[in-house]
Design a protein around this nucleic acid. Structure first.
Length: 451
RNA sequence: GCGCCCUUCGUCUAGUGGUUUAGGACGCCGCCCUUUCACGGCGGUAACACGGGUUCGAAUCCCGUAGGGCGUACCA
């Protein structure tokens, strides 16, 4: 598929896809693949496909399909097109038949146990555990015997024993020798299609131009390129990103449960904190807190990602989360404040006074409560006499902009206290907290403490 | 076991033989702001995994060692 300059007056449309299998919740590793695919499409004004890889009827669950959509929607990673592989079985069947006719797909009768044994034997002899293609040499009688036994065949794609090479947008020049790769099983003995053929057929049919996925697919890519070419199509552009590892460098697969997107949501993480990290982690570009998805797409360049595994540190999320909150204007959270039960009359003032001290949005509730009900004062033993004395000097309500200064000036004059010894006890008496917003800004919203 | 990939400040990384006293971001530390903490602003600290080569000269090239990731499925 070569394009001449005259025809390609506009750049070719970029199409990417994210293809999760609904066998579990989406986790942070999935997000990396989804996010990079989404950004690749969005940056070029292209098309992002959400494709549910649900060909395995046994393990796929509808609840996970819904959950994946909910997770992506929560993050704002909207898709332009939605596909389900389970609805395309007839198409895969047709391609399989085409491959059979071409002699590229052949029936095998080994059981999983037999294959396992054979691999072990090869390993113990110091040989790579590559399928030996013995099914290709089966006689008619042997096949008949297997069938009489009730064995159903599984089907393998016959690889050309050649070196497959491509220019990967992240990994550079990649070369895989297919002579050292087993012919991939495409169809199981129960007739079910595996991931590989469906993916290949879909990517061709849906005109996917850029496949962005984890490096665990690098070897697959070689076999997929052969399949794509066997169908007369041109392989798309590939970008295989490194996988994430934990904060201490351990493989992330061990703790994916605690790293589900749902768990981040439940913990009160802002979607943009997650996206800000994922869009830049692994590049040398600064990981900046962003509130706009499009801003992330504009500075995005897939080729800036490195090949080394990147550490995912949850503390980074918390920092980004806080920074994002600190600079979020009132208009963007007005609805959420209302939902949190903050009175409209004070919502904006409260937000502007308190946002700089929030680690997560829900922290606003603490301050809303203090403002609405008054705080339970926190009085250190050494301030037991000082606080009642100071409270007696509190100005008349309503407290205005100068209330804090008026009060502290007065208390200072009466008691001779100054500096931290003056301000900290007053802060703790009024808010019950030892850290918090600028008191001058907060005081007009406060009321005298309880008790 | 074998194959592929990776290893620069605590973290993400720039760097493709001299322009490097190895750059940036985050963290950390300090200072400033605030007659308090936090928030914010400014500045500083800090690294080429190890061992051999090649070269006038190596973070950069080669070999080896160690460590890590991935693959080697009738998973994706």
């Amino acid at each position: 598929m070569t394009r001449d300059a005259g025809w390609a007056t506009s750049p070719p449309m970029i199409t990417t896809r994210f293809a999760p299998s609904p066998t579990g919740r989406l986790h942070i590793g999935n997000l990396r693949a989804a996010m990079l695919s989404w950004l690749t499409a969005r940056k070029g004004g292209g098309c992002f496909i959400l494709r549910i890889d649900d060909t395995d009827a046994e393990r796929s669950k509808e609840e996970y399909v819904d959950a994946a959509k909910a997770d992506l929607t929560w993050l704002g990673l909207e898709w332009d097109r939605y596909e389900r592989q389970s609805e395309r079985m007839a198409r895969y069947e047709a391609v399989a038949q085409q491959w059979r006719e071409m002699g590229r797909l052949y029936a095998c009768y080994e059981t999983p146990t037999e294959l396992e044994l054979r691999r072990k034997r090869q390993l113990s002899m110091g040989k790579p555990p590559v399928y030996d293609r013995s099914a290709l040499n089966l006689t008619k009688d042997q096949i008949a015997a297997y069938q009489a036994e009730g064995r159903r065949p599984h089907w393998r794609f016959k690889l050309d024993q050649e070196r497959v090479e491509w220019e990967d947008q992240i990994r550079g020049h990649v070369s895989v020798d297919c002579a050292s790769v087993s012919d991939p099983v495409l169809i199981r003995d129960d007739g079910g299609f595996l991931y590989t053929p469906c993916s290949v057929v879909d990517d061709i049919d849906m005109e996917v131009s850029h496949i962005v996925r984890g490096e665990d697919h690098v070897t697959n890519t070689a076999t997929q390129i052969q399949m794509i070419r066997s169908l007369g199509a041109e392989p798309p552009t590939f970008a295989h990103h490194s996988l994430l590892v934990g904060a201490t460098g351990e493989a992330l697969s061990k703790r994916l449960g605690s790293l589900s997107l749902a768990s981040f949501r439940e913990r009160g993480v802002e979607p943009m904190a997650l996206l800000s990290l994922m869009a830049r982690l692994g590049t040398s570009d600064p990981i900046e807190p962003r509130r706009e998805r499009q801003a992330l797409a504009e500075g995005f360049d897939i080729s800036r990602f490195g090949r080394a595994p990147a550490r995912f540190d949850e503390a980074e999320i918390d920092r980004l989360n806080a920074s994002i909150l600190h600079e979020t204007p009132y208009e963007e959270v007005a609805n959420r404040l209302q939902a949190a039960g903050v009175h409209d009359e004070i919502a904006e003032q409260l937000w502007l006074a308190v946002r700089g001290n929030l680690g997560q949005f829900a922290d606003i509730e603490t301050w809303a409560k203090i403002v609405a009900e008054g705080a339970t004062p926190d009085i250190a033993p050494e301030d037991a006499e000082f606080i009642p004395q100071a409270l007696a000097l509190l100005p008349e309500q309503p407290w205005g902009e100068t209330a804090w200064k008026d009060w502290t000036d007065k208390v200072k004059a009466e008691t001779g206290r100054k500096g931290k010894a003056l301000f900290m006890p007053l802060r703790k008496a009024l808010t019950g907290q030892e850290r918090g917003p600028e008191m001058a800004a907060l005081m007009p919203l406060l009321r005298p403490p309880k008790g």
